[in-house]
Write a protein that binds this DNA or RNA. Structure first.
Length: 208
DNA sequence: CCGCGGATCTTCT
DNA sequence: GAAGATCCGCGGA
């Protein structure tokens, strides 16, 4: 790949240290790159097509669906640090979920990355998800994208903004088409808050 | 096509 | 002890 991709500028910390919903929305169309250590697999990359924002307050109300709402625990500590780091956790004892920390240090916000359109490392993705037959579905859904991209707890806390980091986010051309905003998936509290953003016509989103 | 159960981590009640 | 920011395979209709 991917001189063409990794040559694009890495998003700076100032991109992430803003209002969480703004960060979420503006991540659409950006390129996520996973570069494992030498001999640990090929570079994988995908275009971000679906995200969710988890905030401290939404229109003055606590976001009880956010992990950070429970406070600063061993699992959530990275969310309270500076923006532009990876927050990774295991759901239901099975699947890893990748989030980007937003907001300045001391404020808790993060963006769940829910779907990517595969760009590079597709053969590796297929090996990791042999049951998926459609390339465009390899990274559809938060657990699926972590699996396909080879992302696990070992990347907890990595700085997304450092050149040479195993996980980086890169600038891309402006997105075309409609950006949809709906309620977040699989939660109860604040289920109707429009904090899920996705590219409406994209074939790689987790669900329409 | 739909619904159920399994996998088995973190946190809270 | 239970629920949760999930996904997949199985069985029945």
């Amino acid at each position: 790949m991917s001189k063409a991709i990794t040559a694009r500028p890495i998003l700076p910390r100032s991109f992430f240290e803003r209002d969480t919903a703004t960060v979420a929305r503006q991540l659409l169309g950006k390129i996520l790159v996973h570069q494992p250590p030498p001999r640990r697999g090929p570079v994988c990359a995908g275009r971000i097509v679906e995200v969710e924002a988890y905030v401290q307050l939404y229109q003055g109300e606590r976001d009880r669906a956010a992990h950070a709402d429970r406070g600063n625990t061993p699992r959530t500590r990275v969310i309270f640090g500076p923006g532009g780091h990876a927050y990774i956790y295991l759901v239901y004892g099975m699947h890893y979920c990748l989030n980007f920390v937003a907001e300045p240090e001391g404020q808790a916000g993060c963006v769940l990355i829910r779907a990517l359109e595969p760009i590079a490392g597709i053969e590796a993705m297929r090996r990791r998800r042999p049951s998926e037959t459609q390339v465009q579905r390899l990274c559809a859904g938060p657990g699926n994208l972590a699996k396909a991209m080879g992302i696990d707890q070992g990347l907890y806390g990595v700085d997304l903004t450092a050149a040479g980091s195993p996980l980086t986010v890169h600038e891309c051309d402006r997105v075309n088409g409609t950006i949809a905003a709906t309620g977040r998936v699989g939660i109860r509290h604040g289920a109707d808050w429009p904090l899920r953003f996705y590219l409406a016509e994209n074939k790689s989103i987790s669900r329409p």
